[in-house]
Simulated assay, not measured.
Amino acid sequence: MPEASRRYALPPMQIEQARPEEADTVAAVLNEAAQWIAGEGRPLWSAADIAPERIRRDTDAGGYFIARSNGETAGVVRLDLDDPGFWPEMETGTSLYVHKLAVSRAWAGRGVSIRLLEFARERTAGLGRPFLRLDCVADRAPLRSLYERFGFSLHSVIHKGERAFARYELRVPCA
């Protein structure tokens, strides 16, 4: 069992693919997280990254998943089958990629991120892909620590413009 799963009292949670009509729910969680991060002086996503039309497009395509507990939205995550922007060298079909993982502030510190990562790992295995991969801004030490405690290994650090991004991977036993 990964260390992270032993450290948190993880709440019971249902994680399901967001339906097209739930794009506003996804957008609300992402915008709340973006505002909180920006308020901490650490802006992360651009307005284009979380624009309603982009979220709607990704939700319509089946990319977003919503975590709920007792009907309350706790968090969201987007899972992609490829990521040529951050992982162009990876062979198609070898990985699932985590993007836009966000937790509702009401659920902060309650293990929702761990639940979403567990879900992503299970989905990766179910798809028969050997790796779960993600990237984050390299100077986000608490976020990087979360990923490392979960079991991700640092693959590399890449630069895009003036920002450095840490790329992480987790080997997943295929089902």
Rank of each mutant, 00 (worst) to 15 (best):
W87K: 09
A67S: 10
E89T: 14
T92C: 11
E91K: 09
A67G: 13
A74L: 13
E89S: 14
M90T: 11
R78W: 08
E89W: 03
D83R: 00
T73N: 08
F86L: 05
T92A: 15
V76E: 01
D80P: 09
R78N: 08
V77A: 13
P84H: 05
G75I: 07
E72I: 12
R68P: 09
L81Y: 04
S95K: 07
D80R: 12
D82W: 10
V77L: 06
G85F: 00
W87A: 07
G75R: 02
A67F: 04
D83T: 01
D80A: 15
R78S: 06
V77Q: 03
R78A: 13
P84L: 04
E89C: 12
S95P: 05
T94V: 05
G71M: 03
T73D: 14
N70P: 05
T94C: 03
L81G: 15
L96A: 14
E72F: 10
P88F: 00
A74P: 06
F86R: 01
S95A: 15
G85T: 00
D82I: 07
F86M: 08
E91Q: 12
V77E: 04
W87T: 06
T73M: 04
T92V: 10
M90S: 09
G85W: 00
L81D: 13
P88E: 01
G71Y: 05
E72L: 14
L79W: 03
P88S: 03
V76L: 03
